[in-house]
Design a protein around this nucleic acid. Structure first.
Lengths: 145, 145
DNA sequence: CCTTAAACCTACAGTGATTGTAGAGATTAG
DNA sequence: CTAATCTCTACAATCACTGTAGGTTTAAGG
C-alpha cells in the first residue's frame, strides 16, 4: 500500500511550487526521491512529512540553514532538545526584533501619510520626510531597532 | 563653495556601503556622478540629498521600484501629492500586514518554545509542531500528542 | 621626492530562496 | 490514438545588495 505521489501532488500538499520541491532536493534539504521507469519523482509518506516540515518552518520564518539544523536534530530522537529549543528561541527573538522595527516604521509612515493630504509635491511631507532624517519622529530615542 | 565629497564619505553619510552607492548609479536610481581627473566619483550636496532620500526610504521598507517612482514625483514639485501619498499608504498597509503576520508567528513560536523545556528530541514540541500543521495554535486549545 | 597605505576604479560572481523559461519526454483521460 | 496535462533537465532571472580580484589614484609621512 505504498502511497507514492507525484511531485505535483506533493507540492500541492505542502503548499508550494513544484520547482521549490526540486530545489530542496537539489540543495540537500530533501533526500533524492524514488523515480518511475519514466524518470519521474515519487514521494512516500515520510518524504511528504519532511517536505511539510520544511514548508511549515519556512512559513514560520526559519531560514533553510536553520531548517537544515532542525532536520538533522530531528533525525536523532535521543539527542537533547536543547539545540532545537535554541534555534526556536533565536527565531523568536528575530521575530520580536522585526516587530519592534516595523512598529517604528508604521508610526513614521502614519505620520507621513497623515500630514500629506492633498497639496502639491513641493509641500509633500512624504517626500520631505524621506529626504531629511531630522524630520523623523524620534530616531535618536529608542536607540535599539 | 562646491563641497564635493568622495564616494566613501557619501556612503558614510548615507549609512551604506560604497558598493551600494555605485549600484544605485548603475541601475539609474542615482544620476552619474562627476569625476576627478583620476576618474573617481565626486558627489555634490544635491547628489547626497538624493542618496540620503533613497537610503531613508529603503530603511522604511520601500522597494527600489517604489523609490524610483517617489523620486520622479519629487522631481516635479508642481505635481499633485496624490501619487506619493498612495505609495506611502501602500507601504503602510504592507507594514501592517507584516506586523499581523509576525504577531501570529510570535505566538506560535512562543508556544513551541514554552512547551519545549529540556527533554529529548523524541518529545520535542519544536520539532513536533513544525512537522504537523494540525498542532498549530489555532486548532490546539486542548490537543496533545 | 618617494613610498606606503588607504581609498578608489571596473567587472564580475555570489547570496537566499525561490520563480520562470525552453524544449524535451512521460502519463493519463477520453 | 491523441490531446492535454504533467514532469524532466538545465539554465536564467528576481531583489537588493555584498564580496572579490586586480588594478589605479590620492593623501600623508619621512
Amino acid at each position: 500500500m505504498s502511497e507514492f505521489v507525484t511531485i505535483g501532488r506533493a507540492a500541492a500538499r505542502a503548499g508550494c511550487k513544484v520547482q521549490t520541491v526540486r530545489y530542496y532536493e537539489q540543495i540537500g534539504i530533501l533526500p533524492e526521491a524514488v523515480r518511475t521507469e519514466g524518470n519521474q519523482r515519487l514521494y512516500s509518506e515520510s518524504h511528504l512529512q519532511r517536505l511539510v516540515f520544511v514548508r511549515h518552518a519556512r512559513e514560520m520564518g526559519f531560514s533553510l540553514g536553520a531548517i537544515r539544523d532542525l532536520l538533522s536534530l530531528a533525525d536523532d530522537p535521543d539527542h537533547s532538545c536543547e539545540a532545537a529549543d535554541a534555534i526556536a528561541c533565536e527565531q523568536l527573538e528575530q521575530v520580536n526584533r522585526r516587530i519592534t522595527h516595523l512598529r517604528a516604521l508604521k508610526q513614521e509612515l502614519e505620520r507621513m501619510v497623515e500630514q500629506c493630504r492633498g497639496g502639491v509635491i513641493a509641500d509633500c511631507r512624504v517626500i520631505e520626510v524621506l529626504g531629511d532624517h531630522s524630520k523623523c519622529a524620534d530616531r535618536t530615542h529608542g536607540a535599539r531597532a
